[in-house]
């Protein structure tokens, strides 16, 4: 079973996710007092069978740092914000400011990154909820550090599960960092998402 999205559906999804990360960026800017820009330039749909290989190829690193949350409601998804190991300290350092020492930084890194992941994932689901007129509930964010295989097999996934892989760019004052958003969902949930997008497109085009 192949999941295909039309160009129109893809554009709608990219737009929704950009609304979401845009809201996250303004929350993060509010915390730092500096302009942070986030954007989602592209995404791809992966099938479970080739997910681990595709993720490793995309990230170019076997060790990753991730924050995950489970969302249930109009569609169920396990969502991850993922960075290659070692990239996250840069983000956290910029969020916390220069007054923090290296020792303090490593102590605070996990907690701060969990919140950053929570802000970004929640904003994406707020946008999905608003634009697609859907309802969600979410769990608290969980921090993971390990290999792609360890982290993504947290939830033993089924063969027909789908994975939406979104690239996310962080533009922070004098730094550029790229990460990934993963949404692991079952085929029925993916189909529910497509249906919601079609309803949104029909409303937007007034037919």
């Amino acid at each position: 079973m192949t999941a295909q999205l039309s160009e129109l559906q893809q554009d709608a999804l990219i737009e929704i996710f950009n609304i979401g990360v845009g809201q996250a960026a303004s929350s993060m800017s509010q915390i730092v007092g500096e302009e942070i820009t986030l954007s989602v330039p592209r995404f791809e749909i992966l099938h479970n069978a080739d997910q681990a290989g595709a993720i490793k190829a995309a990230i170019r690193s076997t060790n990753i740092c991730a924050v995950s949350q489970d969302f249930t409601g109009s569609l169920d998804a396990k969502a991850f914000l993922i960075f290659p190991e070692g990239k996250t300290q840069e983000i956290v350092r910029r969020m916390l400011g220069d007054s923090v020492s290296v020792d303090e930084l490593s102590e605070m890194e996990q907690e701060a990154l969990t919140e950053i992941g929570n802000i970004i994932l929640n904003s994406c689901f707020s946008a999905l909820s608003e634009v697609l007129q859907s309802d969600f509930k979410s769990t608290l964010p969980v921090y993971h550090l390990g290999t792609v295989d360890q982290i993504l097999s947290v939830k033993a996934s089924r063969d027909d599960d789908l994975l939406m892989l979104l690239h996310i760019d962080f533009f922070m004052p004098s730094a550029y960092i790229d990460g990934y958003l993963f949404f692991l969902m079952t085929l029925p949930s993916f189909n529910a998402l497509i249906k919601k997008i079609d309803q949104f497109l029909a409303r937007a085009h007034g037919n």
Partner: peptide, 20 residues
């Protein structure tokens, strides 16, 4: 904003001591 996300969208937020 976290309260708003919970009341409007049913979303759970974490406010860390590091950032808040």
């Amino acid at each position: 904003s976290a309260i708003d996300a919970a009341l409007k969208h049913g979303l759970t937020s974490l406010l860390s001591q590091s950032l808040n």
